[in-house]
Design a protein around this nucleic acid. Structure first.
Lengths: 154, 154
DNA sequence: ATTGCTGCAAAACGTTTGCACCTAT
DNA sequence: ATAGGTGCAAACGTTTTGCAGCAAT
């Protein structure tokens, strides 16, 4: 197990919910937390498969939802009808700018946004569960963007 | 044609892009702008079909993208891996609070958010195309929420 | 006359489900 | 012993595509 501290969080969560503690769940957790940046459930499954893991697609999908529930990872959606996840472990909460030209996803912090969800939800008589703030943008100088050039090659 | 003013916008856009002006496109436009609230492409197709329209599914999907491009409708995604649209016509820009209990989507205005995307994008050397700010929340008093009760019946 | 658009059906895509078997409790 | 979890494949729902015929330019 690579992520001892996270494993403890997952174990406690599974216990508290009376879910079973299985090796597959920790295997998925390790793979997910190892991942840099954002990833889809299927991506992770394929990767694990390539690394000779025997964990099934169904288990990967289900376990990722458990990891969201115990706050080890976050669920994101950048408007492509595709669920993405990213590790929360040792990371600050942040928002995203998605470049519509080169596909880059840039993370940024916005103290100004942080307290808004609570204020707004309260005024409408709701309590906040989570929020998403995404900016869709384009490179200011696309001709010099190496990510865009790379993308064009494909 | 129900929406003369919108039709003009669409016609101008199609001309400027050298796209053809077809009756199907105006039929989809009328149906989309008639729609209250948020709708999926397939919903719209089914509805039109029920009203004896002969426009095909493919055309509905493609035309909705054109309507987004000429800013008559907006594209939304509330994290369900399903694209939703809503009319922009005679409406102010707004953001959304999605209730995870009752499924309601509440619209709100946030002057405080409006200028943030520009500031942030500029500082990262991008130019804003659009942004989304969604709050996922729960009813403060779910037991008295009639939308939740209704949902439970299903 | 020439593209581009349409309708149809089939395919693609990410995701979920049903079921028999297995395993943590 | 018994839920609950797993792996597999099949099903699902939304969206995209390929293609032959049609219609706007």
């Amino acid at each position: 197990m690579k992520h001892q501290q996270a494993a403890e969080i997952l174990r406690d969560y599974l216990k508290s919910e009376q879910n079973r503690i299985t090796p597959e769940r920790f295997e998925v957790m390790d793979a997910a937390l190892d991942h840099e940046g954002h990833f889809g459930a299927d991506d992770l499954f394929i990767e694990m498969k390539n690394q000779k893991s025997r964990v099934s697609r169904a288990t990967v999908y289900k376990t990722l939802e458990l990891l969201v529930q115990c706050d080890l990872i976050s669920k994101r959606n950048f408007g492509e009808n595709l669920t993405r996840y990213e590790s929360n472990f040792r990371k600050q909460t942040h928002d995203h700018l998605i470049c519509m030209d080169c596909g880059r996803i840039v993370e940024f912090m916005t103290p100004k946004v942080k307290k808004l969800p609570d204020e707004i939800a309260a005024s409408l008589d709701f309590k906040v569960e989570s929020y998403s703030f995404n900016i869709f943008a384009r490179c200011k100088n696309i001709k010099e963007c190496r990510y865009y050039k790379e993308k064009q090659k494909q």
